[in-house]
Nucleic acid binder design. Structure first.
Length: 238
DNA sequence: AGGCCGATCCTCT
DNA sequence: GAGGATCGGCCTA
């Protein structure tokens, strides 16, 4: 069951999203972010990025439904203060002392809803992303995977290993708390942006969230059905 | 001041 | 399917 490839065959481009896009209830914003493109411009001017194919919503403390899994659940702290700022910004935090994860702030300032990016379909800068992930060099990955890279048009399963998972995608793009936490994703001059290239997602898979201990029953994970780059459970009961 | 633990990933059985 | 790596933030004393 090979999934449909959503990548454009031409050179990837797109428009910056508007602030208002992120201002609504996070459970409404999250599924609409599927298909949008996360892009980092490196210091050397290279573009690294991919299409968002899986994400999770986390509810702010203002919400009627309590979400003890959210970092904002206990209110503002030095670590999570970006979550309580304006929408459309990057919240990057370290986890397990080894990896980073990235959220996009949503809703109005102070409400602290956010979206965790869980998987991208690699589109830009695949060679560099592989280096960032430490996947170049020893087989089995490099030899096989390199064939599918180079051009913009392929979400083969090997390439997905670059950005399939919240820690993996941050490592691939080279995202860190020190360099990227708090950046405005909608600023034309920002080194980290979200683009819309017009791709529409016809159907959205909704499941429980992955890897959390609290509020595990909430249906707040959203993914493109059967996309090869989606991580983890493929159904609500999985 | 100290302890606990996580929105993870990788390797090995 | 299980366990280890590894550390900053937050809670308790």
């Amino acid at each position: 069951m090979e999934a449909k490839i959503l990548s454009p065959s031409k050179k990837t481009s797109g428009r910056l999203l508007k602030r208002a896009f992120f201002r609504g209830p996070v459970e409404h914003v999250a599924p609409r972010l599927l298909g949008k493109i996360l892009v980092r411009r490196t210091e050397e001017g290279e573009l690294l990025g991919g299409r968002i194919v899986e994400l999770e919503a986390y509810l702010g403390p203002h919400n009627k439904t309590a979400d003890p899994a959210a970092h904002s659940h206990r209110g503002p702290t030095p670590r999570n203060q970006v979550l309580f700022g304006p929408p459309g910004h990057a919240y990057v935090y370290s986890i397990y002392g080894l990896y980073y994860c990235m959220n996009i702030t949503c809703e109005k300032t102070g409400q602290a809803g956010s979206v965790l990016l869980r998987a991208l379909e690699p589109l830009m800068g695949l060679e560099q992303m592989a280096r960032n992930r430490g996947l170049v060099g020893p087989p089995p990955f490099s030899q096989k995977a390199r064939k599918g890279w180079g051009r913009g048009g392929g979400a083969n399963k090997s390439a997905c290993r670059l950005t399939s998972g919240p820690g993996r995608l941050c490592q691939a793009l080279g995202l860190t708390r020190a360099a990227h936490n708090g950046l405005d994703l909608l600023d034309p001059d920002s080194p980290l942006q979200v683009w819309d290239d017009g791709v529409r997602i016809p159907r959205v898979l909704v499941t429980r969230r992955i890897g959390i201990r609290h509020a595990t029953e909430l249906p707040l994970r959203f993914a493109i059905p059967a996309h090869p780059c989606v991580s983890g459970a493929k159904s609500l009961t999985g």
